[in-house]
Design a binder for these strands. Sequence first.
DNA 1: CGCCGCTTGTGAAATTCTTCACAAGATAGG
DNA 2: CCTATCTTGTGAAGAATTTCACAAGCGGCG
Lengths: 206, 206
Amino acid sequence: MKKISESAVRRLSLYLRLLQEADAAGAETISSGELAERGGTTSAQVRKDLSLFGSFGKRGLGYSVQELLSRIRSILGLQSRWRVALVGAGKLGSALFSYRDFEARGFNIRAVFDSDPRKVGTQWGGLGIRADEEIDSVVRAEEIDIAIVAVPADAAQQVVDRLVKAGVRGILNFAPVRLKVPRGVALKNVDVTLELEGLSFALNTR
Amino acid sequence: MKKISESAVRRLSLYLRLLQEADAAGAETISSGELAERGGTTSAQVRKDLSLFGSFGKRGLGYSVQELLSRIRSILGLQSRWRVALVGAGKLGSALFSYRDFEARGFNIRAVFDSDPRKVGTQWGGLGIRADEEIDSVVRAEEIDIAIVAVPADAAQQVVDRLVKAGVRGILNFAPVRLKVPRGVALKNVDVTLELEGLSFALNTR
DNA sequence: CGCCGCTTGTGAAATTCTTCACAAGATAGG
DNA sequence: CCTATCTTGTGAAGAATTTCACAAGCGGCG
């Protein structure tokens, strides 16, 4: 199997959303050109991306919205739900937790952790907040695959070490630090400051 | 002036953070190799990135931490503060607002908007929440450069249209939609679902 | 049935990004 | 002053990604 670039995966994920919108709008079929237009790319790019995984379209017609939806879901591994833990019950954690769109897209938050003893034990939508020390046992018991890390920068590496030790295989990190994870564990970072600085650069150079 | 790739800018931003850490740790000087190691890249990459803007190092010695800090700040346009508006005073907006790290990095939130009449008028850390209808006048009066959009997907385009009309030149969008902005307006997206799906793909293919 | 208009899938070309590799500057030590 | 050791800056090579361009499949219509 050849290597799939990160940007190709991002775009697939984007196509998935566009397809869901098209589906909701009642479209039966969609062309690479329409997808490109709505996704801000080119039709050749769309076709190339899809061709990495097979040929799903019909010449002259385009793609069946239903079929492409299910193909992309399967490519991205979204057929079944992922079991997710959220670490950090601060404001960001709370915002993420209440963002119920995750649920709809197959990410099921099954545990919440925080280091603050005053928060531990309180209920969040039917889920009791656990102490960081319980990460190992709870993650194992709940068979968590993915963790969302929303703790301060100086606590993040320790939390991640615990998560990895407990068997988590994917981490989405919101703390502004470069985390170390062993190979075999997937890591993605969301760094708002970095994006703002990107805007600053763009505004600065013109 | 030649074109600078998005990834190069991201890395500069990363180097900036690493330099701040090195500075806090008391380092006077730093080599491309050290930066690379801490930033998860290669020394050639670091040197190439920096060489796009000039030659800031001393052979045999490396880079002066202080000088490189100020050079990168100036490249990224962070010498002066940016005037920022936050649109959307929900949970995410609240999390972003209270993340005072922005302030430290030169992004000064000067206005908060929300469409909910019950929120309008309440105070957030000394700032009164304004109605979306006021975007035009307030953004002009406050000379806002950058807006952070943290509203539901179906409201985002309308908000952005207003912001753009009022003269905002950079937008950081958290809503899961592909926004349309005129050329000349810089747009960055933070899409958590997309990142989670990227993790799903990574976990799925092995 | 045959032609026409549309759209896919994909090699090949073009472009962009990363890595290599090395001359040359800088310092320290004898 | 000379040598040994670092580390930069940068053309050139290599790799990856995007765009081009076109043959070929498909459906509709006369």
